[in-house]
């Protein structure tokens, strides 16, 4: 038990530092694309600590207070149900008690908890952001579910560890074994990471940064910290599912950074979809590829 708790803390620290590092890179990379110098690599950490060092925070009652807590708790809980490494006792969290379907639903708990706080703050822009997020989620989840369902039915298990274990050599990586599922999932991946072209939820000018509009000080600090951790959870999940998992932290970082780089390139290159455009797009191309893959799989036999 003590080992599990220690591991959980380790997972939180690892994802936090990885996330801050990656997003530091993200900001510098974006600056270089704009032909700027850009901030130092650790700028995100500084921003985060500064937010925690604010002297006051706005509040709208106890529910507003609990929103960021639920959000962070949701993130960390889903982190603990993802196994980070394969063939290792370390960084497994509670993943043996859960599975992929549970994780997909756990990932929505935090945002919905936070949506309650957004609602109680009474900022209409925040609620608009939440609605946009939930609408976008329709588009993201459907192709994503289709692609992971292909994986689960292909490997005959819904456990993430077992899916990861089954990919023992490069040719058995799921991105090789199920290329269509991988391609479909990448669309959802970019959307779930909140990059352009799927970043309409927190649009600063249109909806005043959306769900975050009323949060400041320590609340914003928590939200910023959980955001980078959440991104890392998704990266690690994709590494586990499609990129063959990792046997140690360095391989994990290498593989997840490759995915992060893809996300960064897409985000830097594309403009923004409107909400309904995003959903329509996701329900067209990725869904058709996914359905095609299912048909090929079940009717060519």
């Amino acid at each position: 038990m003590l080992f599990t708790i220690f591991n959980s803390l380790l997972a939180v620290l690892l994802t936090y530092s990885m996330g801050m590092l990656y997003y530091g890179f993200y900001r510098i990379g974006n600056a270089r694309i704009h032909r700027r110098v850009g901030p130092p690599l650790w700028q995100n950490v500084i921003d985060n600590i500064k937010l925690f060092a604010k002297r006051e925070a706005p509040g709208h009652g106890i529910m507003f207070h609990l929103g960021p807590v639920i959000m962070t708790a949701g993130t960390i809980t889903s982190m603990l149900f993802v196994p980070f490494l394969k063939d290792s006792a370390w960084l497994q969290g509670f993943s043996s008690y859960g599975n992929l379907i549970l994780l997909i639903y756990l990932m929505v708990v935090g945002p919905l908890g936070n949506a309650l706080a957004v609602g109680v703050s009474g900022v209409p822009f925040g609620v608009m952001g939440v609605t946009r997020g939930l609408t976008r989620l329709i588009g993201l989840e459907v192709p994503f579910f289709l692609s992971v369902a292909l994986l689960m039915s292909g490997s005959g298990t819904i456990s993430i560890s077992e899916i990861m274990m089954a990919q023992d050599s490069f040719s058995n990586w799921n991105m090789m074994a199920h290329p269509a599922a991988f391609i479909v999932s990448l669309f959802s991946f970019v959307g779930m990471m909140g990059a352009s072209p799927f970043d309409v939820v927190g649009a600063p000018v249109e909806v005043y940064s959306g769900p975050q509009a009323e949060f400041g000080g320590k609340y914003l600090g928590f939200l910023a910290a959980q955001r980078v951790m959440f991104s890392m959870v998704k990266l690690i999940l994709w590494v586990d599912l499609f990129l063959g998992g990792a046997t140690n932290v360095f391989i994990l970082m290498a593989k997840s950074f490759a995915l992060f780089f893809f996300y960064f390139i897409v985000g830097a290159a594309f403009p923004r979809f409107k909400t309904e455009q995003a959903v329509d797009f996701m329900l067209k191309l990725p869904l058709i590829i996914g359905i095609g893959a299912v048909l090929v799989r079940f009717w060519s036999l």
Binding site: R36, V37, P39, Q43, D47, P204, S209, Q212, A213
Partner: peptide, 9 residues
Amino acid sequence: ERFGVRGAA
């Protein structure tokens, strides 16, 4: 941004 100044919404 190189001095840590960035926009807020």
